[in-house]
């Protein structure tokens, strides 16, 4: 890491370091608690991954359970539900990328075009709201609104003479709903970062374009959009880096037994297999596979981002 001013200071000698530590020992005292936290609640569970290579039993504990090598992994891949969960994780994430990634960018560009200050403020407040609702609440809202018989959506369709649609109980529809809800939940909050990038676009560019007789749509398309490209690239790379993981809460709260074949993802598989059925070792192996692929994706994504834009994530 270089200093922000770009000036390279002479390398501190060993003696300088000792003086620094003696002068600022309190900083190290402060760090003691957080570092302990990281060890206990992050690094010890990482060590706990060894049970993926053991036949874990609660009575013997982690250390005394027997080693079984890669047996859990071969068992895991023999489970049809697991391959299904991997497939679903990828399908839902790719769809989320395709629809969920451009949505906040488009929204930010639209919000930028609004000239009424009050309307813009109110719209933003309302649009950020879904981000603050828990997935339980969102799940409750969705299952109520889109219920096949009683939901307001189908009743609205019925009044137009359209027969009820099984929004949430038919696999294909459920996937569409899942993606729709993801976009809905994240579009407003996701737009903030692009809005802040837009505010740093120089006014003189627009002024010049105005003199040249550009319409506002042309300005949006030819000035604003290219100006926020670096932000877009970084956000895209971050998103690709998380292709293999889906949080547990969203699928768990939106799915129902009728759509298990397309709603079961890796995280829900781990929960069901590990905690509901007590198969700790096999589901830890599933978690490890997910973590390793994720980690590789993030590292690659960051390397790519560093090459393209000089703006790596770290």
């Amino acid at each position: 890491m270089t200093t922000h001013s770009g000036i390279r200071l002479p390398k501190p000698t060993r003696n300088d370091k000792r003086v620094y530590v003696r002068q600022h020992w309190l900083l190290y005292v402060m760090l003691a608690l957080p570092i302990t936290y990281y060890i206990v609640f992050h690094y010890i569970p990482m060590g706990g991954i060894v049970i993926a290579f053991k036949n874990y039993s609660i009575f013997r504990g982690i250390w005394k359970s027997p080693w079984v090598g890669m047996e859990n992994f071969s068992k895991l891949f023999a489970i049809a539900e697991f391959s299904n969960a991997i497939k679903n994780t990828l399908v839902l994430n790719v769809l989320n990328l395709v629809f969920g990634f451009p949505a906040p960018i488009i929204l930010a560009l639209m919000l930028n075009e609004l000239s009424g200050r009050h309307f813009k403020k109110i719209a933003q407040t309302v649009l950020y709201l879904p981000h603050f609702l828990s997935w339980v609440i969102i799940g409750g809202l969705v299952t109520t609104l889109f219920a096949t018989q009683t939901g307001i959506i189908n009743r609205g369709l019925a009044s137009m003479g359209i027969s009820p649609v099984p929004w949430l109980t038919e696999s294909r529809n459920w996937v569409v709903m899942y993606v729709f809800v993801s976009v809905w939940q994240s579009i407003g909050w996701g737009a903030i970062i692009y809005l802040s990038a837009i505010t740093s676009v120089g006014e003189d560019l627009y002024e010049a374009a105005r003199i040249d007789g550009c319409s506002r749509f042309q300005m949006t398309y030819k000035i604003t959009l290219p100006s926020i490209r670096p932000t877009i690239v970084i956000m895209l790379i971050l998103k690709i880096g998380s292709m293999m993981s889906i949080g547990f809460e969203q699928p768990q709260m939106l799915k129902n037994p009728m759509v298990n074949d397309s709603g079961d993802v890796i995280s829900t598989f781990i929960y069901r297999y590990g905690l509901e059925n007590g198969k700790y070792s096999i589901s830890t192996a599933a978690g490890l596979i997910q973590s390793v692929i994720n980690f590789a994706l993030v590292i690659t994504a960051n390397a790519v981002s560093n090459r393209i834009s000089d703006e790596g994530i770290w």
């Binding site: 569970p45 590990g274 830890t284 978690g287 770290w314």
Partner: peptide, 16 residues
């Protein structure tokens, strides 16, 4: 920072 990108996962955390 490493903990942001790699985690023990649900089961080891539960056991801890």
């Amino acid at each position: 920072l490493f903990t942001m990108y790699f985690a023990g996962g649900m089961i080891p955390s539960y056991l801890l």
